[in-house]
Amino acid sequence: MIEELREKVKKLLAGGDVELVIGWEKGSQPLSSTPVFIDSPEEADRLVFDSTCGNNPAVYSTKDARRLVKAGKKVGVVVKGCDARSLSLYVAEKQVKRDNIVIIGVPCRGVLDSDKVEELAGGREVLEYSEQDGKITVRGKDLDLTFDAKDVLSASCLACIYPDAKEYDIFIGEARDGKPNKEQNAAIDEFEKLSSEERWKRMEEIYSKCIRCYACRNVCPSCYCNECFVDQNDPQWIGKTPEITDTMIFHIIRNLHVAGRCVECGACERACPMGLDLLLLNRKAAREVEERFGYVTGIDSGEKPAMADFREDEKQNFIMG
């Protein structure tokens, strides 16, 4: 698979079809891969793809100062299913021209939640990692463990509906169809059963751990505002402390800003250095949007995004009263 990916990328670059390819290369840490920008065929052998590729590379086609990715230049992006949804969303939201990107899908088996791996390793440092046939092996000093990949996959991946790109130009291997994955939504079902006081309490438990580093926001493909509301100071909308009153406002507003736009990639949750359960509310919002507006984010770049559309026949039950 990886050889095929590298060959395809070499061809794209050599033939001038794209000027740059965004993908992943091996990271400096045993359990990490890291985004890489490949601009010549010789560099293409750096590309990797495995379950450590947790970043959503789509993010680099919108974040500021990505001169490399400025409009007009054709860019290839190597994507998992969720990452592809971000690109479709960008096209739908007119952030990226479809003609300017070459979507290169890779078959995703889910990505790791390193916190889960570390927990299973029981504090011993993981120095080596390998994967085969749905099994993950980690090694270190006094450490040699093999476990089922699903025990250490990200929550986002356990509930994933489109592991492979729905819209793509090139697919490495054979793209599987998406499938609804309702049974994995237990966490949201549980949350919905709670009273509003209990929900608030649950949210307080989660958000009180936040240190306001904004890693979640900055790796999120859907958070691409030129100026985030938390970075405005005239007027200042929100306090800057890590106290729960401030962190709660940050997370609730971010949640509402990505409702109908979140592709449930889980990049935010994996990025969080404090291990916050960030998917709970985001996936709850995604479910709401699907139930109310029949819209699933990022699977059809031709469809107007839920929050940018109004249909006369849509349910109006969000109007309380």
Binding site: T34, P35, V36, F37, V59, Y60, K63, R66, L68, I211, R212, C213, Y214, A215, R217, N218, V219, A271, P273
Partner: peptide
């Protein structure tokens, strides 16, 4: 700096 997304994670830890 190409891949840095300018969060504050590094500075805050």
């Amino acid at each position: 700096s190409a891949k840095c997304v300018n969060c504050g994670a590094c500075a805050f830890v």
